[in-house]
Design a binder for these strands. Structure first.
Lengths: 332, 332
DNA sequence: CGACTTATTAAAAACGCTTTCTAATTAAAA
DNA sequence: TTTTAATTAGAAAGCGTTTTTAATAAGTCG
């Protein structure tokens, strides 16, 4: 690795001159600037980024802490984050909490000692369920900006990018009631424990309440056999004429189970799930989905955080990214 | 942020003593060590990692360059990489090439100037197709270790972790022929363009050849409507009694289309696809899959790279991670 | 022509840490 | 008491940059 020192020695000038020349300082004459740049190019000189970071106290790196990356939602968000980072000349250090608090805490602690300029995170399930988020507040207290997305802690003050979970499910439910005249709408969920799960369920409940219908919720968070659970439930509750799944698996399973019971979709039963573009291809008929703009969430998060970092008096914002109801073949 | 200097000043001792005390040097007496550690704990001192990295010339960070992370295979690999990294006290900086060469090159260049101790990468499609991999060789030439997984450049010498694409499909095909007496086996693919796609197809072709059966391949790389294509194909080729899908989508679609045509699975038709744990839940009957040990690939890659970094005379290795045929309900 | 800018380069300090080398103190040995 | 060894602490150099300050040469002006 070539260093400034080496360049300086070879050119018989001082280190500072070399540095300034490479950074196009006006203090340096055109002639020496040329000489320096020429040699630098020849020796393929690249400034050592660690040294720069130490000196400037800026890393141009963001710590990204995700519960998991095998969930397509987080994968898509990560994609958005990475793209926005690249566009702004930032790198990302990715840590996976695996939904545990101690891993989340460990990553925050480790990276907060100089490695990153800020954090983007979705809170681990454990931290959220046990309401233990002191470790996050600690980071904020030491003046490192944190942005939370999707899974958010309400009593921590920071930038947030969230999804309109309540509203999107409310509207999907409303659609089934108003446009399709459904009366017995079942909600299926395997994420009831999560804050987003609760919000989505509330959207559903509120809609049913507003239309004087009776709610029906099938919780599968710890179900041993999801297929069988749904299958049995549908047998016992034959009056069900619509299903809303608030995760990206149980909706498709519900379609399969309903078909198995001889139900015609969407004639006898409508199904709406959560999902992404290619999710729809995995069921027949193709499932109607509530599509979260995961990529956009990632992109916006990164932009907002960078803005926060570069602005003196940045004020906390909460951005809501609306989801889109993408109707397909599993609804009328 | 508390620094060594501050601690030293408060304790009225020198910076070097503080440093040594915190690092448990034998040169420091128990008494002062105690004093130092106590104050450090009180002020929540954490050594600045950037400074450490500059001083020691080790970052304990690995650059991970992936074509994408929305493909479940790479997501799973990333998960494995991250876990192994954590277990060995390493961080990862993740870059996505989006399958383009210039992004891949940019990331390599940027990170190679001090930011990481090594790279793990799967070559971008563009680099692979155009056979432009000089930028990777450049990194190796500057003595930064690189490990390639899955998508590999044969004429670059470095550690490699690959999948037995040919063999796994050969054996799955063989299984259908020998154990299930299938005679008309169709291969469905939407990744025919990729090197892995070609390898998998070869495994299928070879098996059919060895058993004197006639191959039947349905390419859907650019299909406008995957469902319809498969549906129509099955109508026109009613003799098909088994399907192998070499991606993680078309297998499930095939199951759905076959059911639509009144075929009973697996009685009339067996289906084997590629996939991961939760893929199986998305079809009914649950699809039998060739399961790539993506997580293991990631884990092994990281371990091997770290070994490379810490060993003086490390010799290049190529590790093959066998895939597993996970039979489920879509086969007899 | 001496004081005063201006342009250009060099020197030095600093970022926060590790580590080697040196110095001082104490205890043990002679 | 002197010598030697062991223990402990400090000073200083250095990692590769950036940036502030100082130095030198050259040009400007009254």
């Amino acid at each position: 690795m070539t260093t400034l020192k080496e360049l300086a020695a070879l050119l018989n000038i001082s280190v500072s001159t070399v540095s300034k020349a490479l950074n196009n300082s006006h203090e340096i004459s055109d002639k020496t600037r040329e000489r320096v740049k020429e040699l630098a190019a020849e020796l393929n000189y690249k400034p050592n980024r660690i040294a720069q970071q130490l000196k400037t106290n800026k890393t141009k790196t963001i710590g990204v802490i995700l519960p998991t990356v095998t969930n397509p939602f987080f994968a898509e968000v990560l994609h958005g984050i990475e793209m926005a980072a690249t566009n702004n000349d930032y790198d990302i250090i990715v840590c996976l909490s695996n939904e545990t608090m101690h891993k989340e805490q460990r990553s925050l602690e480790l990276l907060s000692s100089g490695s990153v300029d800020g954090f983007i995170m979705a809170v681990a399930r454990e931290s959220q369920v046990r309401k233990q988020t002191q470790h996050i507040q600690t980071i904020l207290d030491s003046d490192i900006p944190v942005l939370m997305f999707d899974r958010v802690v309400s009593d921590i003050n920071c930038d947030k990018v969230i999804v309109d979970d309540f509203k999107s499910v409310y509207e999907a439910t409303e659609y089934l009631i108003e446009k399709e005249q459904r009366k017995n709408i079942l909600l299926v969920s395997n994420i009831e424990e999560l804050s987003v799960g609760k919000l989505r369920t509330k959207g559903y409940s509120k809609a049913l309440e507003d239309y004087n219908l009776k709610p029906n919720i099938l919780k599968l968070d710890n179900a041993f056999d999801v297929e069988e659970s749904i299958h049995n439930f549908l047998i016992k509750n034959n009056e069900i004429d619509a299903i809303i799944s608030i995760d990206h698996v149980t909706g498709i399973v519900a379609i399969n189970m309903a078909k198995k019971l001889g139900k015609e979709i969407p004639k006898d039963l409508s199904v709406v799930g959560f999902g992404y573009e290619h999710t729809q291809l995995l069921s027949s008929p193709k499932i109607s989905i509530i599509h979260q703009k995961a990529h956009k969430i990632g992109e916006l998060s990164m932009k907002l955080l960078i803005d926060n970092i570069n602005t003196k008096d940045h004020e906390w914002q909460t951005i809501v990214v609306p989801s889109e109801l993408k109707l397909s073949e599993s609804t009328k």
